[in-house]
Design a protein around this nucleic acid. Structure first.
Lengths: 187, 187
DNA sequence: ATCATTTATTGACTTTGGTCAATGAAAAGT
DNA sequence: ACTTTTCATTGACCAAAGTCAATAAATGAT
């Protein structure tokens, strides 16, 4: 689990005791393409660290799918809202590729928070980071046109474009596949 | 500062020592209508607790104003992004009424985090809460029509409507004042 | 109370993106 | 390799929201 530890190091350095306690709570799972690691109406009581694979976080609006986020290796994936509030998830989390994740349960995480102030801090930093992610995405919806959102995606995350079908990119940008096709055509 | 302590109690109970250390870092300020407590391009190095007053958090897109949030007494107001990242703010925070706030500086808050695990936890809970707020707002932009957003606002926050001019509500909903006027007319 | 300014409404027109349908291209299954 | 299904593009049309401009209503200042 060196990958996970490295990811954490970006936020905060854990000593061996903290790390070992944390690692002991993780359970490894192999995931197949199209598996749902979280289903609508379930409570999300876990965080999952993605060792390998791509996931999408989506729900249905009327008939059509809306994708709130994609997650890649090195990311945490969870329904953070359901995780925090205990309410049932309105979203699904689906594997777009085969993969490997490490899960930790909410209850165990809370015990770790109590035991180590450093892990409590890590929890804060993770929450702050997630805040920044959604806040940026909110801005993109408030201030930018679909074409702007697409162009920024191309600039920032061209990897994503090559690995994910275009109609999902459209669902992520909040537009129809036809519109995305036209945005790409005109330029 | 009983109001602030009560607000905290919603998250977590502080003992007297923790509370006193925290309170000692607060500075009280009277604010006049139209004052900017944060200006574009400044770093936001504070959290402010609103004892009295209404504030708006806004920026300019091309020529026109976009309002990201309103804040009322009992809320914290800050540019959380600038606060967390240290980057200059792209937003202004303006008082819509006269008011009273209590500021705490980032540096002092960090000292408190180090001193008391409970305050560290409070920091996490506040971050988690802010996450939920923006995440809900993002959903409203991704999934709802302007009319839906307006109707929900009427349902949830009718107080806001009576205290804030309609063109600002429109800017908050991400639509033109004309469109809001028409949404209200048809029904 | 009057006048000036700000805010809200309404109409005409434009722009943008959505929907439906047809066609082409690519990928997956046998 | 061939068929089937999925995905992407394109066209025609529609609906929603934006813009510009005129007017009305409300608010504030003197």
């Amino acid at each position: 689990m060196e990958a996970l530890r490295k990811y954490f190091d970006k936020f905060i350095l854990l000593n061996d005791e903290e790390w070992n306690d944390f690692e002991a709570c993780l359970t490894k799972e192999s995931i197949q393409k199209k598996d749902l690691i979280l289903k609508e109406n379930e409570k999300c009581d876990f965080l999952a660290f993605i060792h390998e694979g791509i996931f999408r976080f989506y729900s249905f609006n009327d008939g059509s799918e809306r994708i709130t986020a994609f997650f890649f290796s090195g990311d945490f994936v969870t329904n953070y809202r359901s995780f925090l509030t205990g309410k049932p998830s309105e979203h699904n989390i689906e594997a777009l590729t085969d993969g490997v994740i490490y899960r930790i349960k909410l209850a165990q995480l809370q015990k770790l928070y109590d035991k180590h102030q450093t892990l409590e801090r890590l929890g804060r930093l993770v929450a702050e980071n997630l805040y920044l992610t959604v806040a940026n995405r909110l801005d993109s919806f408030m201030f930018q046109s679909p074409a702007d959102r697409y162009n920024e995606l191309v600039k920032r995350n061209s990897k994503l474009l090559s690995e994910i079908p275009q109609y999902m990119i459209a669902a992520y940008l909040g537009i129809s596949p036809e519109t995305l096709s036209r945005i790409r055509a005109r330029k």
